[in-house]
Amino acid sequence: MKALRKLMTSALVLGCATVVVASPAIAWQPNKPIDFIIMAGKGGGADKMARLMQGIVEKESLAGRPLVPVNKSGGSGAEALMAAKGANDPDHTIMVTLNSFYTTPLRQPGLEVDVLTFAPVARMAEDTFLLWVHADTGITTFEQWLDVAREQGSKWVMGGTGSNSEDNIITDFLNTNYSLSMKYIPYKGGGAVAKDVAGKQINSSVNNPSEAIGFWQSGDMVPLVAFTNERLPMFPEVPTLREKGGEFSYFMQRSVVGAPGMSEEARAYYTELFTKVYNSEDWQAYKSKKSLMGDLMSGDQLSDYWRNQRDNHEQILRSSGAIR
């Protein structure tokens, strides 16, 4: 307890000192712990990434106040969006988002969330998707997979994170464009999906590399096709869907956003903070190790990107019938 108190006191002193030292230089500084909402459950790709960001901020003492991570995974991100929208102190509320940032407000207009009201802090990366099966299926190519999945019809089970999420969109695309009728089972997190592919509980998944990498290295899971524009450096032998003639690629944004109503000064502070995180050695190493793509983006550029992505997703969801 003594040690804990000492630690807390020293953290407090350190925090105050940073504020005092830095205050003449920067206009806005956080004056209390920052709520760091994670739009996903514990242990999934988004969660690991968020905690890595938090770790880098702590390790390099980039922020005067600690980031306090809170997982809000409910309702494909609706819970997180509502929490950010209703934040008491938008200047001290930031959130790590996925693509449910666009899809959930589109599907649930009742939430009355407009993504463009969120403060564009920083896009840290774009995550990629691959199609995975268990090695024991003997399937090694996308064509073989199509044959088997088509033959099995609705007995072929695809697992994914949440309903009408990224995974669901890709599954819908494959079902419509390759005349498949796979069954989609929503899970709470990508880690659980990968585990169930590795345990042969389900037939395939479209996990991010970071979620499936352990089971890929151990030889349990095999990637068949990547939903990217070019082949991934980590999986040079895995073709893209575009090479196979599919006009489709899909990425997941990994962005940090500020709660609606955040002041421009605070937004600038967080953008600077996360630019430092982005440029850190740890983040860059993580990006290449987990096969992440996409460069840093912030401010108006990021808002424009969101507008595009939202319109894109509106089209995708409309054509799949998820929204009218």
């Binding site: 514990k42 969660d47 690991k48 905690r51 890595l52 770790g55 990498i213 089971f215 151990s218 349990d220």
Partner: peptide
């Protein structure tokens, strides 16, 4: 889950 995040930050690769 928190321990796992720690392991990732310390540079380990939890998995099979």
């Amino acid at each position: 889950a928190v321990l796992l995040a720690g392991m990732v930050i310390w540079g380990l690769e939890p998995g099979p």
